[in-house]
Design a protein around this nucleic acid. Structure first.
Lengths: 110, 110
DNA sequence: GTAAACTAGTTTGTAACGCAAACCGATAAG
DNA sequence: CTTATCGGTTTGCGTTACAAACTAGTTTAC
């Protein structure tokens, strides 16, 4: 007794320690751009990444929700303007992602 | 005239050159294991990756469809046995993926 | 015998995701 | 007024990853 859990195999936790928020290609692109620039506006990212507007918008929202970017909206001469900044959490997440990937890839025999 | 295509912005091709078959974490795990081992059986991969059986099975099918692994089934002492091998295409895909990722990540300032 | 339990996987159902089209509120031009 | 443009956001939809449920066969228990 105690527990008659019919334990499935699902308590094997998969050996992946990868931040999916960062891992997604479109977001990796965004985040690496922001990492070197420190901040950029929507239209700049749009042209640099080649994403569509809808796509860029939703990925930015997801990064914001994750706490990785801050979105600042203001009006410049009556025209809306959106500035994106990588947060510290975002920088750290990217660096951790990088370490993980580099280690995994570097140790493959060439 | 000629064409009055109301061209959207969608002819901007996104600047991502990443093989999604390889990029998926679970499959990256599988493929890197096969890369060093050259071949392995289903149960070995199961324990090494920590994936569930269903998951492992479907990822392997996807890798097979992509032409990256070969799946050989045989009976050993009346018990089914599945051997997985990385194809040349699989090796090359992984190496190309690695180059792309390493370049992208290495050029980030530390 | 036949039933229960185990082995080695495959198939199914579902929630989440990524994508581009469609939409929206505001300004500018004709 | 109407039309187009700008700077984005929301919607709709096909695809995916995931674990639960299932399958086919084998060994063990009775």
């Amino acid at each position: 007794m105690g527990s008659n859990l019919e334990k499935n195999q699902s308590d094997k936790e998969p050996k992946i320690e990868l931040d999916r928020v960062i891992h997604e290609p479109a977001r990796l692109l965004i985040v690496t751009h922001l990492y070197v620039l420190d901040s950029a506006d929507f239209l700049f990212l749009l042209s640099q990444t080649g994403l569509t507007k809808g796509n860029l918008s939703s990925h930015l929202s997801k990064l914001e929700t994750a706490g990785y970017v801050e979105i600042h909206k203001e009006f410049i001469e009556k025209i809306p303007h959106t500035m994106l900044t990588l947060t510290n959490a975002g920088r750290e997440a990217l660096m951790q992602y990088r370490s993980y990937m580099q280690e995994m890839l570097n140790k493959l025999p060439s």
